[in-house]
Nucleic acid binder design. Structure first.
Lengths: 217, 217
DNA sequence: CTACGTATACTCGCAGACGAGTAAAGAAAC
DNA sequence: GTTTCTTTACTCGTCTGCGAGTATACGTAG
């Protein structure tokens, strides 16, 4: 069970891991994280950085070590990770690795409401998606190969995973697209009919209603 | 480019599509959406429902039609979708289907910080994940087959996609796990060494630093 | 008929997210 | 040497997310 984290924003985990290597002030954390491309691996919004750091401090996961100005520089606070902070980071990492979580993507949301459009339009949208996916896969693959020479595998694993999932997505989209194009998608004609005659008819809606009844959750 | 939505919460899209079928009051929207299992396809928090509906109304995507009490019931407001609302929903759906978006999962975040743990612990965490994934895949597959008889394909497509991605994830985890177990993961020994001797050494950190340099974005 | 559970239908308040803005210092151009 | 640009380093205010709480009606077991 995903225990409530004192600071739930994933940016906090990134901060903890980076500040574990050496004490830093917030802006430096941001630079290092950006240099490592961590903002590709997590949904990081830099506007949240200072809030997150402050909350980490409030919960005793970070502590300020050297606050004050050097030369004429604006004041800045250097933070160090505490023992509790290190424990939190490790525990959080364990949870993220071991426990699969259902996190529906935006695409899934799109699929679940695609009935509102007609089958032909959906096909053309998916075709577009497939093109874009293939471009990105190609680019990512190149980039990954380029890095493989210089960077230890350990730091490429997330990119490999992301790439594998993109490929799976592309394969799936291609397969549905083939059904739509070939006219072998079950119920495709009814779908088209109902869509052309104004919005979804109530009886079809009623079918959807029973989409997912009681789950043994 | 993902245009700014007047109400960006995906719950708003769900509300728009459901209220397109017939006017409803908010609690009914929730019931219908829940009955259709839409909360599985999107990250829906019911606490946000009334806020979202209010915002949709504010932006002219919904309008109140019948407010007032029936019998001794508490007052409730029935909403109808406007033309703008219908357009917004269609446009949003198109965007979600056609434009792939990078949305890093929590697992990706976990992978990107797994260096903080040792290779042996990571292996055992991944083993655990794989077990859980396989259970869930089995359960989802069963459920999907059960529904296939009663429910049109159109309404199962998101579940099929989710299942396909789970399978891809399981396959990937299994492959990395095999490398770790077989000791063929490149750099595994260095990783172990560095991890045992306290935290990551600066030179390894420096390597990570160059993880993802300038991207031609 | 009355007590209690359960479904209905919301309200509220606070924490957090994050875009946009700010301001100083150093580099660079002229 | 002064204008301008970029980088460093944050602050602020708003909006929204959402968990927890509330209140009423309806069913039903005793």
């Amino acid at each position: 069970m995903p225990r409530r984290r004192p600071v739930s924003n994933l940016l906090a985990l990134a901060v903890l891991t980076v500040v574990t290597q050496r004490p830093m002030h917030p802006y430096e954390m941001a630079s290092v994280l950006r240099a490592r491309g961590k903002d590709q691996d997590m949904p990081i919004k830099w506007g949240s950085l200072y809030t997150v750091v402050r909350n980490l401090e409030k919960h005793g996961l970070l502590e300020a070590v050297e606050s004050g100005r050097q030369g004429a520089r604006p004041e800045r606070t250097v933070y160090r990770v505490t023992d509790a902070g290190r424990r939190e980071a490790d525990d959080w990492t364990r949870e993220l690795l071991a426990e699969p979580r259902r996190e529906p993507s935006a695409f899934e949301a799109g699929l679940s409401v695609m009935g509102g459009l007609g089958p032909d339009e959906v096909a053309s949208l998916l075709r577009r998606r497939l093109e874009l996916l293939e471009e990105r896969i190609e680019a990512d693959r190149r980039e990954l190969e380029a890095h493989r020479a210089e960077v230890p595998r350990l730091f490429l694993v997330e990119s490999e995973y992301a790439l594998a999932l993109l490929e799976a997505q592309a394969a799936w989209v291609a397969s549905v697209l083939a059904e739509l194009d070939g006219g072998t998608f079950p119920g495709q004609e009814e779908w088209r009919t109902y869509h052309q005659s104004g919005e979804m008819s109530p009886d079809v809606a009623a079918l959807a209603e029973r989409g997912r009844p009681e789950e043994g959750e």
